[in-house]
Simulated scan of single mutants.
Amino acid sequence: MSMISDESEMDLEKCVQTCEEEEIELPADSSGGKLMYFLAPYFFGKTWICDISLSLLGAIMSPSLVRLPYFSLCDFYDDQLETKLSDVFSPLWMIIHYFLFFIMLFVNFIHHRKKVNIEKKALQKLLKEVAEIDLTEDPVAWKRIAFKVNQFCEEGGNHYSLFYSGEHCMRFFVREIVKPIERQTYDIRCYCEGEMYRNFWKNPPNKVLVERALANYNKSVGNFDELSHKAEKEECRDVIFEKFRNIFNTSMLYLGAIESASFMIMTPAYIISMIAWAIFNSFSAPH
């Protein structure tokens, strides 16, 4: 009888654990959930409107900066050349610039979304959960932490999940908490009412919370083999994405610098040409 009761208790515990795990649902658990994690705040937060507006502005400003001075100089020195409006505001030129600007803005949005701009209270909640939860025995510890922090943020009025998976939560903790402590920079950043603060560590209660969370993490860091493997894959993808973003942003910076330099050269050249032409005509005109 005792053996049967023990087996029943074990089955009951497994059932309870399974039910708890089923209740813990993060965006990455559903098909398309991770995609929605990034796209939902982009569209529902109306960030896309701002990006489209800025991209259109960039597409319109670019021909004004480069092509208008160029064709003005061409017209000045070549009377036979007839510049059309379509030459200055070339549709192809504007479309290319529009998409370049839009991609740059969208990629930067994804980058900032992945990094997680965490509020002070949410960070305190995260540290508290890491400090208190059993990271050694619980197989879904980081998933549970991410779920609780997401839930806390939703209760605080945030409509979007902070973390899309347990690995995402763990990587954030390692990047933003563990590494600054290991490097002794203590640069733990968070946001409060939209402003970024770097003095989180200097607050004594926060410092104690960080130390407790770090101590619990260090005790169980060797038990994250499977999760660490997944996190490494995610980290590898993040590195590739970061390289692409850096290359793209650098390319756009160089493009902007070249176009600005062209404007700075051709515009004064056109003005000087006009002044020289006016002076020459004034001297050559019959008195």
Rank of each mutant, 00 (worst) to 15 (best):
M36R: 10
E195T: 10
I271M: 10
N150H: 00
G58K: 07
L255T: 06
M196W: 09
N150S: 02
F76T: 05
P205T: 13
Y191H: 10
K120R: 14
C190S: 10
F38A: 01
F263H: 07
N216G: 04
P91Q: 01
K84Y: 09
K46R: 13
N108G: 11
G256C: 02
K46H: 10
H111D: 15
V116Q: 08
R171C: 08
V208N: 14
E242I: 02
A141G: 03
S260R: 01
G222I: 02
L162R: 09
G166Q: 03
I258Y: 08
S220V: 03
L253Y: 10
L68V: 10
P286S: 04
D78C: 13
F224W: 01
F147G: 03
R144V: 03
K179G: 02
K121F: 09
S62R: 10
P27K: 01
Q151R: 15
S284N: 14
F173H: 01
V66F: 15
Q151V: 01
I279N: 08
F263T: 08
E211V: 00
Y254N: 07
E234W: 10
F163D: 02
M274C: 07
H229R: 14
F76P: 02
F163K: 06
K14M: 13
D134A: 07
R183H: 12
S64I: 15
I52F: 14
L85H: 05
A276F: 14
L54K: 07
H112C: 12
K148G: 00
A213Q: 04
A59W: 07
S273K: 14
L214V: 03
R144K: 14
F263C: 13
L56I: 15
T47A: 08
P69Y: 13
I60V: 14
L105N: 05
V178I: 15
F248H: 06
I271N: 05
F43S: 04
F109C: 08
V174G: 04
D238I: 12
M252K: 03
I95V: 13
M252Q: 11
D225Y: 07
P41S: 05
A122L: 12
F244H: 03
S53K: 12
L135M: 09
P91R: 04
H229Q: 10
F109P: 02
E195A: 13
K207I: 07
